[in-house]
Design a binder for these strands. Structure first.
Lengths: 198, 198
DNA sequence: CCTTCACTGAACACAATGTTGATTTGATAA
DNA sequence: TTATCAAATCAACATTGTGTTCAGTGAAGG
C-alpha cells in the first residue's frame, strides 16, 4: 500500500517539477497539460489522475509553500526583533523565514518573479501582515484605528516582500540569508533616520 | 503597408473595455479572443485587424497607463514632499500621481489587483523607484552604495505600491485622493517613530 | 455615383482540452 | 507462485479556441 502511495507521490512531484520549469521558461499562461506530461515523462491521461488542470497544480504548489512559510513567520515578534537588532545581533526567527524562502528559491522565484502568479503576492502579504503586525499593534494607540492598521500592514508587508523579490530576481546568491536579515533592519533604520531628520 | 491603416478608434476602445471587464471577472488567463469579440460586439475576425492576440491588448493598455503615470511621477521630489508635509500641507505633485491612478482606477485595479498582470507591478515599481529615489540619494552617503540603493528602491516603491493596491482593492472610495496622500506621510512618520523609539 | 475601407460572416486547418474504455505493469499478499 | 489491484499507458473522441483567408456589405465623402 505504501508503495502505491509513493509512486503516486513521485508522479505528482514530477508534474510539479515540470510545472515550475515551464512557468519559469514561458510563463504560467503558456503552460499546457500536453507539455507538462511530456517533460514529466508521463502520459497526458495520467496528468488528469492527479490534477484537474494546470490551475490545480498551481494551487497545490502555493498551498505547500505558504503553509511551510507560515510555520516560520508565526514565531517572528517585531518587538523582540527590534531589540535584538539594536544589540547588533541577528534575530533568529526572521532568519528562519528568509532561510525557508532561500530553500525553496526556484518555486518562490517563479511565484513572485517576472512571471508571477496572480494572487500569490497578496497571499504572502497577508501572512506577513497578520503575524508581524498583530503584535506591533500593542505598541501604539495609533494602530488601534482599524483602517490605519490595515494600510500599515499593506505598507510594511509590501516593503518586506519587495526586498525579498529583489533578492530573488537578482539570483539570490548576492546576499546570504544573514545579510538579508541585516539588510531589512538597515533599511528600516535608514528610513527612520530620514523621516526623523526632515 | 497594411490595407487597414486607418482603423476605427472606437473599436479599439471597445476591445480594451471588454478586455478590462473580462480580466476583472475571470483573470487574464481565461480571457479568449472569442469572448472579447462577443462582449465588444465585433466580429472575431475584426479583432485581428487591431491586435495580434490578447497579449497585444494587454501591452497596449499597460503602455498607455505607464506613460501617463510617469508624466506625473516625474515631478515628485521627495525632499520637497517631506518639507511640505511637515508644514501640514499636501504635496501637490504626489496628489497628481494618486489622482491619475484614481482616474484610471478600473484599469489599475485590473493590473494590480487579485487578477494582477504579471510584470506590471514590477514596471510600476521601477517608475516609482527611479524617479523618487534618484533624488533621495543626494540626501545621504549610505545611498551611494549601489546595492543598498537598489534594495532601498525596492523597499520604498513596494511600500507605496502596496498602499495603493490596498486602496484599489477596497474599492478606492473609502479615501479621497487627498486622504491617500496624507496617509502615505502618516505611515512614514509612524514608522520613523517606531524605529526611533525602539 | 462610385470608391474606399472598417467590418462582417463563413469556412479552413490546427492545436489543446478533458474524457472514455481497453490494456499493461509491477508490487503485494494469500 | 500466482492472483490481485492500484497506477499508468494508449488510442480515440467530441469540443473549443486559434489564426487566417476571402468574398461581401454598408455608410461616408470626394
Amino acid at each position: 500500500m505504501s508503495v502505491h502511495e509513493k509512486m503516486n507521490f513521485e508522479t505528482k512531484q514530477a508534474i510539479k517539477k515540470a510545472f515550475i520549469q515551464q512557468v519559469e521558461e514561458e510563463g504560467f499562461e503558456r503552460v499546457t497539460v500536453k507539455k507538462l506530461a511530456l517533460t514529466a515523462q508521463i502520459n497526458r491521461g495520467t496528468f488528469y489522475l492527479h490534477y484537474s488542470d494546470k490551475y490545480d497544480v498551481m494551487e497545490d504548489l502555493q498551498q505547500e509553500l505558504l503553509m511551510e512559510l507560515e510555520r516560520y513567520v508565526k514565531h517572528v515578534q517585531p518587538v523582540d526583533a527590534f531589540q535584538t537588532m539594536k544589540m547588533g545581533q541577528l534575530y533568529q526567527p526572521f532568519i528562519k523565514v528568509i532561510a525557508c524562502i532561500k530553500e525553496h528559491a526556484p518555486a518562490f522565484r517563479m511565484l513572485l518573479g517576472e512571471q508571477e502568479s496572480p494572487g500569490f503576492t497578496q497571499k504572502m502579504k497577508i501572512i506577513f501582515g497578520n503575524h508581524i503586525l498583530d503584535r506591533l499593534s500593542v505598541l501604539r494607540e495609533e494602530v488601534q484605528d482599524p483602517e490605519f492598521q490595515q494600510y500599515l500592514q499593506a505598507f510594511i508587508a509590501s516593503a518586506i516582500l519587495g526586498v525579498i523579490q529583489e533578492w530573488l530576481d537578482k539570483g539570490n546568491e548576492n546576499l546570504t540569508v544573514e545579510e538579508m536579515v541585516a539588510l531589512h533592519f538597515r533599511l528600516l533604520r535608514f528610513l527612520g533616520n530620514v523621516v526623523a531628520d526632515s
